[in-house]
Structures are given as C-alpha cells and as structure tokens.
C-alpha cells in the first residue's frame, strides 16, 4: 500500500496495490471514504479462492503509485497480472492515471503513451510529471 498526505495535512490517501481500493482519511472530519472497483477481486475472494497454485494466475497489480495536492490526488493504475509486471521493465505500453477529489469523486482519467513508474502533479501549472521505466522525466498538461 502507498500512503500519501496532502501538503495541507488535511487528507491522507492509502492506495492498495493488489486490490483495487483506495482509502481517503479526512483528518479534519475524522472520516474515511473507501473507493472500490467493483470488478476487482476482494480480500474475501483472496481468502476463499487464492492458493499457492493459482496465485500467479490471479494476482493483479492494480495500482502502482499516486501523488497528492491539497485539492486532489492522482492514481497511476496498471491492472496487469503481477507475473507480467515483475518481468517487464520496458516503457512500451500505456499507463492510465485517474484524478480524484478528496470526496472520492473521479474528476478525470487519461491514457499516457508510456509505462510510468512515478508521477507527480503540479496543480498550479496543471502539469503531470512522469518518470518512465528508463528513468527519463516526461511531462504533460492535464486539460
């Protein structure tokens, strides 16, 4: 799980990697918001259906990383099977980024033309920065 706190200290988001779920902690209101992909397997499914023989066939790498601002957070999504992720270090392929507000509302999503490993978002310039697998720094404007 990757955990990020907004610079204003009011929100934290925990992004799970192997289950497609994100948890927002609203520290001002002492409230948690869960965002779950209904198509993802759940922890209950892992308990009842996963075993040593089938885990490499079933386990998915849903979310790679994320970044936060005071207004929003962005998740770098993957969704491939984990066995394919660990054997792949090429930038070839696409990445999907999803931008949420701190109430858990999906604001926008974009398909990037490279496979990314790290992201950061500057909300003053609307620029998304991306580090690709080959350690190059890229940027784009989120419209």
């Amino acid at each position: 799980m990757n955990v990020y706190m907004a610079p204003n200290g009011k929100y934290v988001v925990g992004i799970q990697n192997f289950v497609d779920a994100m948890t927002i902690f609203n520290l001002d209101e002492n409230k948690t918001i869960g965002i779950i992909n209904p198509d993802s397997y759940t922890l209950e499914d892992i308990e009842s259906e996963f075993n040593e023989n089938n885990i490499s066939e079933k386990l998915r790498w849903y979310n790679t990383t994320g970044c936060v601002t005071d207004q929003c957070f962005i998740v770098l999504k993957d969704g491939r099977f984990y066995r394919d992720v660990v054997n792949e270090d090429s930038e070839t392929g696409n990445s999907v980024v999803c931008k949420y507000d701190w109430n858990g509302k999906l604001l926008s999503s974009y398909v990037l033309n490279k496979r990314a490993t790290y992201i950061a978002y500057c909300d003053m310039t609307d620029k998304l920065y991306v580090i690709g697998s080959s350690n190059k720094l890229y940027s784009c404007n989120l419209k």
Binding site: T32, S109, N113
Partner: peptide, 30 residues
C-alpha cells in the same frame, strides 16, 4: 461494513472509461 475492509463511506469507482490520450513530452534525461 465489510468483514475485512471497513470505511465510514464506501463508493464504487466509476467504470474506467478510456479517457483522453496524452502524449508525454521529454523534459529531461536523468
């Protein structure tokens, strides 16, 4: 109220509609 995951509010994420495609521009080679 899930047995293994419990938050005050639970939202089902929107279906992942394919968003706009973006071509990344190289800023710097590290």
């Amino acid at each position: 109220g899930n047995r293994y995951y419990s938050t005050d509010v639970c939202l089902l994420s929107d279906k992942q509609e394919t968003g706009d495609s973006i071509i990344l521009q190289t800023v710097n080679e590290m």
